[in-house]
């Protein structure tokens, strides 16, 4: 069970949060300029590295804020929590 430090509410149980997937890199400014392979890569291929990974979580049963969390996939240690993207 993760204990996530919501910037507004303080430390809260993972039960109160909904996982929103990996935090994708910023959307390309002009997708029309990308190759099909690059567009598919940005759209559908998340990073799956071992170690610190940025993820989106929504405090859905708490304050409702969307958070970006950097979680170490080896230890589940949460290294950073911030509001928004």
């Amino acid at each position: 069970m993760l204990l996530i430090h919501c910037p507004f509410c303080g430390p809260r149980s993972e039960i109160e949060f909904s996982y929103g997937g990996p935090a994708a890199p910023p959307r390309p400014d002009d997708p029309a300029q990308l190759s099909d392979a690059d567009w598919v890569d940005w759209l559908t291929v998340p990073e799956n590295r071992i170690g610190p990974v940025p993820e989106r979580w929504c405090h859905s049963k708490g304050c409702g804020a969307w958070l970006t969390i950097v979680r170490d996939t080896r230890t589940h240690e949460i290294l950073e929590v911030r509001h928004g993207a």
Binding site: I15, E16, G62
Partner: peptide, 25 residues
């Protein structure tokens, strides 16, 4: 609910949205 309800963490007139038996509360 999963909150830390010790008086030092959740004192009088403290309020929170949370989960109670799986329901938003």
């Amino acid at each position: 609910c999963p909150l830390d309800l010790h008086p030092t963490a959740f004192g009088v007139d403290h309020v929170a949205l949370t989960d109670a038996f799986g329901v938003r509360a």
